[in-house]
Structure formats: C-alpha cells, structure tokens
C-alpha cells in the first residue's frame, strides 16, 4: 500500500468524524433548549470545522483525480436551481456570522456541468470569501462569450496582485507555497474547471478585484 493510499483512507475516516461533529453541532445550535454562553464562539467552531471538512474533501478529490478515478458527470442543469442549493448549504453559517448573503441568476439560465464537483468548488470559494469579507458575499451566474461564468464575490480588501497574476490552471501548475498558502482550494477549482470540456475548450478559473462588490471575486468559466 502506498503512503498516498493510507493517507486517502485516513482522510476518509477523519471526514466521517467531522461530518458527525458538524451535524451534531447544527442540531445543537438549532435546538432552542441549548444554552450557549457565547454564541460567537459556537459559530467560529462551526465555521472552522466546515473549513477543515472542505479541505479534506478537496484533498480526497484531488487524489482521485490524479489517479484518474474521477470523471465528471456532466449534465444540463438549471443554474438558478443549482445556486439555490449552494445558498442552502451556506446560508445558516453566514447568517449566524451576520454576513449578508445573496445570489443573482436569470431563472431560465441553464448550463452543462457536474453539479457535485462545482458545488464543492463554490462552497470552498464561499468559505474563503468569508475569511476576508467585511459583511457581504454574493454569488452570481451569467453567460459570457458562450461560457457559463460562476462568481463568488465579497466586499473585503480583495486578492493581492501576486495571486491574481498566478492562478493555477491545472495540477502540474505552480502551487506557490512561499505565500504561506497551499492554494488547495484554487488547485481543486482549477482541476474541476479543466475537467469540463466542450469540443476543444476546457474550463478555467480566474481571480479579480472590484467586480460588482468592492472586494475579491472568484470566477469559474465553464464551456
């Protein structure tokens, strides 16, 4: 057994524990009989556990992608319905942190993608935005030059220039550990985007600042 395999199966196990913790916390916080001294601390707990779970999930998926055990299940989806699920996954968490959270999409917009994989990407972009936003996060979708663009924006200070200039586009790309960030989320996003193909066109990701909101903006372009 290779070390990577041991790692993968352990991650699997840890994730199961985290799942249990998350669901139990959700349940506890939802119960009016639960008494918590400092609600803020509970929210931090919930948020960080979510983040850890998300990172492990991405690690697992990257592992499988590298071993070519994942092929995207691309179907036509109504994007509005899809974003509604993205919001449903994150709403509770962001509400409790007093972050204004909204989404914007033409109800008739449809796109071709693997909903599970892209949901994972947007979740992690939202968790990231939460770390840097002042008090607002917005998710949106639109068609642009025949590509479906999904955006996650915040009103924080924005991405530093070096990150915008050096967005990874696939697994072999430059993960710059010098910045102190593993860029796991971006690597994962880039890989998922790349797996989406139409004809000769692969999907890609980009970062920018001050799109609709003042802060950073994560973009995923899908063919």
């Amino acid at each position: 057994m290779e070390f990577a395999d041991i790692l993968a199966s352990s991650i699997h196990d840890i994730k199961n524990s985290l799942s249990m913790i998350l669901n139990t916390m959700d349940h506890l916080l939802d119960d009016p009989n639960t008494r918590i001294g400092d609600r803020k601390q509970a929210d931090v707990l919930l948020f960080e556990t979510n983040r850890a779970n998300n990172s492990l999930l991405q690690l697992l998926m990257l592992y499988k992608m590298q071993r070519q055990q994942v092929s995207p299940n691309i179907m036509e989806h109504n994007v509005d319905d899809f974003l509604e699920e993205v919001v449903a996954t994150n709403r509770g968490l962001l509400d409790s942190l007093n972050i204004q959270f909204d989404y914007d999409c033409d109800p008739s917009l449809s796109g071709y993608f693997d909903d599970n994989l892209v949901l994972g990407v947007l979740n992690s972009a939202i968790l990231n935005a939460r770390r840097y936003t002042k008090d607002r996060i917005s998710v949106s979708a639109a068609m642009q030059d025949n590509l479906l663009v999904l955006r996650v924006e915040d009103n924080g200070a924005g991405f530093p220039d070096f990150m915008i200039a050096d967005v990874p586009q696939d697994l072999d790309g430059s993960a710059s550990f010098s910045s102190g960030s593993t860029q796991l989320g971006l690597l994962f996003a880039a890989q998922v985007a790349h797996l989406h193909v139409n004809g000769n066109c692969h999907g890609h990701i980009a970062l920018r600042n001050r799109h609709q909101l003042d802060g950073g903006c994560f973009e995923m372009y899908l063919p």
Binding site: N16, S19, E85, V87, A88, R91, G92, N116
Partner: peptide, 15 residues
Amino acid sequence: SYLSKPFTKDLLRTR
C-alpha cells in the same frame, strides 16, 4: 439523488 454528508437542514429541504 445523492446527498453527501454533512448536509444542512436548508440543503435537505431544498433538495
């Protein structure tokens, strides 16, 4: 449908 753990109450409702 497939639902991956953990899922929030909101997601379960929407789905």
